[in-house]
């Protein structure tokens, strides 16, 4: 075992994928000379050259569309959009073009595009640099959406996303880039669509993804002191999410809390709750509770942002509620 930062794990995944397959290219603002705004693409220009690692102008709509066109012409582009908030400018490329090309052309072609983008608050980045918009993309048939919580998964899911024949929105939490995790000596691909049990427990299940998995862990430790054993299911993939893994955990604990940083209303948690209320109704000993951000933009000031972002105390409160 060794320690690795999540940012480095992503960097290593890009290096390994590009070394293995010369059709993998990178496109994005400041990904080449500057090595990426968060350093994820550092050193890749030197390794793979300017044709495969391209700094683009600040033109999100056309960067993303170029990724689609390149994917339709034999490349596997990895496009970086500097903040998830900026994917709003690239929606035609993702929603109307990438997501639909395979279906609307009758299956004659796939679009092996990966769009990497960081979401999440906690850095006082303000209302236009902090949003978690993954539910938008999870709502679009044809897109896959993944969001790793740890270094090994960051590596493994990015490898799978690049190898995937279909468009994948790869969501990174920017508060996690610098976090160090234990990783196995040999990093391997992690399949898309398969959740993992991040912490086993018998009493109550928390389903989460990304940076909130660590928040769930903190809450679980607090409850463990009072004898409540929390099981944490890390979804890893949001679309297609691992319904079987969530149901299996629910069958064990009979109580379910769903946690994400994104706004609670109309979010990923709503989908999971609705589905479990349908196929897992007989297993439930308590109402399903969601923990997400309140229905508001992400504020700037530290104190205000804390009102927005779910923390361990809110998770603890939700867990106590379903344990009543």
């Amino acid at each position: 075992m060794a320690e690795m930062r999540i940012g480095k794990a992503l960097n290593q995944a890009l290096i390994d994928a590009m070394a293995e397959d010369e059709t993998v290219i990178l496109l994005g603002e400041d990904v080449a000379e500057a090595g990426g705004p968060f350093g994820v693409t550092r050193g890749l220009l030197e390794k793979f050259g300017p044709l495969r690692v391209r700094d683009t102008p600040i033109s999100e709509a056309s960067i993303a569309s170029a990724g689609v066109g390149a994917a339709l012409t034999g490349l596997k582009p990895v496009v970086e959009i500097m903040f998830m908030d900026f994917t709003t400018l690239a929606m035609d490329a993702l929603v109307n073009q990438a997501a639909k090309a395979r279906f609307m052309f009758g299956g004659q072609v796939s679009v092996p595009l990966v769009l990497r983008t960081p979401h999440g608050g906690g850095l006082s980045a303000g209302p236009q640099h902090s949003q978690c918009l993954e539910a938008w993309f999870a709502h679009i048939p044809g897109l896959k959406v993944v969001c790793p919580s740890c270094a090994a998964d960051a590596y493994g899911l990015l490898r799978s996303a690049i190898a995937d024949p279909d468009p994948v929105v790869f969501v990174e939490n920017k508060a996690l880039y610098a976090r160090k995790d234990e990783v196995p000596d040999t990093l391997t691909a992690v399949p898309i669509g398969v959740a993992r049990v991040a912490r086993p427990g018998r009493d109550v299940t928390v389903v989460s993804y990304g940076a909130m998995v660590a928040v769930a862990e903190t809450a679980a430790q607090e409850l463990a002191e009072t004898g409540i054993e929390v099981e944490i299911v890390d979804l890893r993939t949001i679309q297609p999410w691992d319904e079987g893994a969530v149901l299996t955990s629910l069958e064990k604990t009979h109580r379910l809390v769903i946690l994400h940083e994104a706004v609670e209303a109309f979010g990923v948690g709503a989908e999971i709750a609705a589905r479990m209320a349908d196929i897992g109704f007989d297993e439930l000993d308590a109402p399903i509770v969601r923990v997400g951000a309140p229905f508001m933009p992400v504020p700037f000031a530290t104190g205000l942002e804390a009102v927005y972002r779910p923390d361990a105390q809110r998770v603890v409160a939700a867990l106590r509620k379903v344990m009543e």
Partner: peptide
């Protein structure tokens, strides 16, 4: 690579395709 229901959408798609021609030296 398709007709397109979105006005202008084919333009950056074609640009990406040209980028692939250049990169792959087709």
């Amino acid at each position: 690579l398709g007709a397109n229901g979105i006005v202008g959408a084919g333009i950056p798609l074609a640009m990406g395709s040209a980028l692939a021609h250049q990169t792959r030296k087709t």
